[in-house]
Structure formats: C-alpha cells, structure tokens
Amino acid sequence: MSELLLLARIAGRRIAFRALDVNSVVEIDTLTPVPGTPSFVSGLAALRSRALTVIDSAKALELEQATTGLEAIVTEHDGHLYALQVEAVEDVAEALSEPQDVRGSVGPGWEHAARGMVESSAGPILLLDAGAIIAGPAHSALRAA
C-alpha cells in the first residue's frame, strides 16, 4: 500500500496522520480565544477568509504538557475546518503496511486516538485519527465508561 503519511510530533512523541485527511500545514500566528470552551480548544484562527477551530492536540489527548509549537495541521471534519496544533511537523513518508494493533495499551490519552502502528519508510510509527482528536477528551471518557 502506498498511502502517504504526514509525520509530526506531539508531546515529544512521533506520530502520523493520513495525508489524505490533511488539507495543509499552517503556522498559527494570531489566535482568537473562545471563552467557555474546553481547554483543548485553543481558539479560532483565520485561513484564507475561513475560520479555523484550533485544537491543542496534546490537551485533546489529555497529555500533561500543552503544545507549544506554532505549526498546525489543517483538516476538515464534518464540514468544519480544524487546525490541530502539534509540536512540529516533520516529514512525509510512505506507509508500508496496514495499521496493526500495538500489543497492550499505548498509554492513557493516546489510546482513543490511536489507530495502530504503521510500518513506514521512516520506520514504525503510531497512526492517529484526526477526528478522534477533534472530538476531544470528553469523547474518550464516554468510551471508557
């Protein structure tokens, strides 16, 4: 299978998204905060006259450290545009296998967004689902229950 993956870093870990799900990679310079939203929603940003909902990926995965980088991955989900903030966007690589289950848990937080391990031209990597990150931690709590 020759699917392309976008490699990025969240909270110090290397992860991948399907390149098909990714519209573009942007740098978020100005953020409009949205009071009242859960903390993983960083705010709104404008991209080519469209409003993006900016999501802090690390917070959405309930990881300890918040995302500090400027880079974000733009993806469309249910008709809305989102920007997933990541620590860094690293590379594009070719997927060499279907996602496979990782033995045991990949850790709380990661668990609900993880779609398995993918062998890639850049080595084995954890594939994340952008939609699950957008849904936020509340979603994972529901799933756990």
């Binding site: 949205v34 009242g36 939203t37 859960p38 993983f40 929603v41 909902t53 999501i55 809305h80 989102y82």
Partner: peptide
C-alpha cells in the same frame, strides 16, 4: 457556523 466543540458552550 461554528465547530460543535464551540457550539456546545
């Protein structure tokens, strides 16, 4: 329209 996470507020 706004994203559901924002509308939920």
């Amino acid at each position: 329209p706004l994203a559901p996470a924002v509308m939920a507020t």
